[in-house]
């Protein structure tokens, strides 16, 4: 597989995951706002913090109100993480590599992008917003399903998975970081029922509430939530699971040693964390998440150096 093609697929998958995660976040926030009016860490402003696009947002919008935030995250072409821009970028990446993908995938992403564009050009009425977000999520899930069901187990599929997993892990840590910032109590035993509900909101932001309940069979407690999101081996959005799957995908590729090492290092570092301590101290959690994200950057850089290497990178001549 061409290096350029591998790189495009990696980014295509990242952008699809980004669009889906953004849609999920917006959807959940709406529900949370109804349950916890006036809680800053759950407010519209927090979404801008999660996506890490604060400067860009503040440059273009006077206030972080609902209309501005929704418009920024759904329809703003200046913002690479907006649903429209992400789907557009995913489509553009696929457009230049469509010969390696099953045709249905191109047709689906093409149609999803055009439909989303059409919806957004008419503005997003509050009443129809949930339908719109559900459509985006379903469209992205369809794409993931098409990859799963129609793309052979080869390098193309590996790079799609790799992009998706890394983006997902990244988004999970961002949500954990921002959503828990204002609600970490000094003493975990002091949990008020209200704070309990807020920890629940962290889970809900990740569509993790049901799976958490099945796993812990216990009431929602901060340390358990942190453990579940960072360390659970089975939940598909937990950081541990994403990194573990990354390792597996890397192993299937040629010249994978550096990438496997980078991902395994990040994965194993997660196990060293104590849920109790992190749930008790907001600064510590924040610091820990920073460390995890630096690990993601290292993984991304290793992927680029190993497989997408530019003009001058040394590459061995292979037979055939």
């Amino acid at each position: 597989m061409l290096s350029r093609v591998a790189e495009n697929l990696y980014w295509m998958a990242r952008y699809i995951e980004r669009a889906e995660d953004t849609a999920r976040l917006l959807r959940v926030t709406r529900h949370l706002m109804l349950d916890f009016p006036g809680t800053p860490s759950l407010g519209w402003s927090s979404l801008i913090t999660i996506t890490g696009a604060e400067d860009l947002f503040d440059e273009h919008y006077p206030r972080r109100d609902e209309a501005s935030v929704v418009s920024f995250l759904c329809a703003d072409r200046n913002h690479g993480g907006s649903i429209l821009a992400a789907l557009g970028a995913a489509r553009e990446n696929l457009r230049t590599t469509r010969e390696v993908m099953p045709r249905e995938i191109w047709e689906e992403i093409n149609q999803l992008y055009l439909t989303v564009g059409n919806h957004l050009s008419g503005g997003i009425a509050q009443r129809r917003r949930d339908d719109f977000l559900r459509m985006v999520i379903r469209g992205c899930q369809t794409l993931v399903g098409l990859v799963e069901g129609s793309l052979s187990h080869g390098p193309a599929r590996r790079f799609c998975e790799i992009g998706r997993l890394l983006e997902r892990a990244d988004m999970t840590t961002r949500i954990l970081d921002v959503r828990s910032a204002n609600l970490l109590p000094r003493n975990a035993e002091d949990l008020t029922p209200f704070e309990n509900l807020q920890w629940m909101s962290v889970l809900k932001s990740l569509s993790a509430h049901q799976m958490y309940r099945q796993r812990t069979r216990n009431r929602v407690r901060g340390p358990d939530v942190v453990r579940f999101i960072l360390q659970d081996a089975n939940f598909p959005r937990s950081v541990y699971r994403c990194l573990d799957d990354l390792c597996r995908n890397f192993t299937a590729l040629a010249r994978h040693q550096d990438a496997v090492n980078a991902a395994a290092m990040s994965r194993d570092a997660l196990l060293g964390a104590s849920g109790d301590e992190l749930a008790r101290a907001p600064e510590q959690l924040h610091e820990f998440v920073d460390g995890v994200q630096i690990g993601f950057q290292r993984i991304d850089q290793t992927i680029r150096e190993t497989w997408f290497a530019g003009l001058d990178a040394p590459a061995p001549v292979i037979s055939g």
Binding site: L2, A254, A315, G320
Partner: peptide
């Protein structure tokens, strides 16, 4: 002539 692939240069 070679192309740049994820596995290296390929004829």
């Amino acid at each position: 002539v070679y192309m740049r692939t994820i596995e290296g240069l390929s004829r």
